[in-house]
């Protein structure tokens, strides 16, 4: 046998064994992730059935209907304003939620990371406690706080700061407050992990080199904990964009986000192809946003 052939045969056998060993995981991915996505993709190109469901023939109507609408009477095509309003609301609520959780989460994570080692566990535990409760119950708890006869309005009226209750519930602000509350831990935990690794002696070095406190934050702390900021933003932005429960309960029926709108298509509206197209659109937008965000933050990291 030519030397080298034996090694090549071994390598080939190893490669085959590798495929075999990862087969369960691949199968799970195929059945659990790729399969359903494919189903949704196909649905989005079918015709809606009379009582829900989908039928043949293949059609682009659902994708057309995502952005555009045809007038029933004269057949003119115009932008689907109602849809665009929902997309816009979803986008700005998710972006502002991400910003708010960051603004609130950074000091929180900093506080925890600077506690003595043994009390940090307790603080982290407190941060994660909300996860133990059902999302719906947490959302109703927020409702109890912000409704017209709720805690906040009662307190403000009692203090004489306002004459009559502020209408927060069933507005976009309610959704914003709710989402910020629900997703805050998802921002705090990765930020904590990043700050925990932060070498606090660098602050002394910066302070020694004539940096003000603001300069320390901008030039030293934020660039170094950037991976935590990126991770936290992704963890908050993605579920926020697809939020369903919070806008449903706190936003009321009028202030839908894209998640509620998709649910509507599969429920009352009985337009499964449109629901499927909207779902695919959400997936595409999230993927695109992620790619752009990761690339931009990586470049900023390089530039220092």
């Amino acid at each position: 046998m030519v030397p080298g052939m034996a090694e090549m045969a071994t390598a080939r056998r190893r490669a085959r064994a590798g495929w075999l060993l990862s087969a369960p995981a691949l199968l799970l991915l195929l059945v659990g992730a790729a399969g359903p996505l494919l189903v949704v993709l196909v649905f989005s190109f079918l015709t809606k059935g009379g009582y829900g469901g989908v039928t043949l023939p293949l059609s682009g109507a659902a994708w057309f209907g995502v952005f555009l609408e045809r007038d029933i009477f004269d057949g003119t095509v115009s932008a689907a304003d109602a849809h665009l309003v929902i997309f816009w609301r979803s986008a700005w609520l998710s972006v502002v939620t991400t910003l708010l959780t960051f603004v609130l989460g950074l000091p929180t994570a900093w506080f925890i990371a600077t506690r003595p080692e043994r009390s940090r566990g307790l603080w982290l535990f407190l941060i994660t406690i909300p996860f133990w409760t059902n999302l719906l119950i947490r959302t109703f708890a927020i409702m109890e706080v912000i409704r017209n006869e709720g805690l906040l309005n009662t307190a403000l009226t009692g203090l004489g700061l306002i004459d009559r209750p502020i209408q927060i519930l069933f507005t976009d602000w309610a959704t914003l407050i709710g989402m910020t509350y629900v997703y805050l831990p998802l921002m705090v935990l990765p930020l904590y992990a990043a700050i925990d690794r932060f070498d606090f002696r660098l602050l002394e070095a910066g302070y020694d080199l004539y940096a003000s406190r603001l300069a320390l934050l901008r030039k030293v702390i934020l660039p170094i904990v950037r991976p935590g900021i990126v991770a936290g933003s992704i963890l908050v932005f993605i579920p926020a964009l697809g939020s369903y429960v919070v806008p449903r309960v706190l936003g009321g029926g009028k202030n839908m986000m894209i998640g509620n709108f998709i649910e509507l298509q599969f429920g009352q509206a009985r337009n499964w192809p449109l629901g499927a197209a909207l779902s695919m659109l959400l997936l595409l937008v999230v993927t695109a946003a992620l790619l752009v965000y990761v690339r931009v933050s990586a470049r900023e990291g390089r530039d220092g």
Partner: peptide
């Protein structure tokens, strides 16, 4: 405060900024 004193320190751990180049 330290950032007002015309005094600089070479730290035992060096405390170099890991996100900046040598020149930065």
């Amino acid at each position: 405060p330290p950032n007002r004193r015309r005094v600089n320190t070479v730290f035992q751990s060096y405390a170099l900024f890991p996100h900046l180049t040598v020149a930065q």
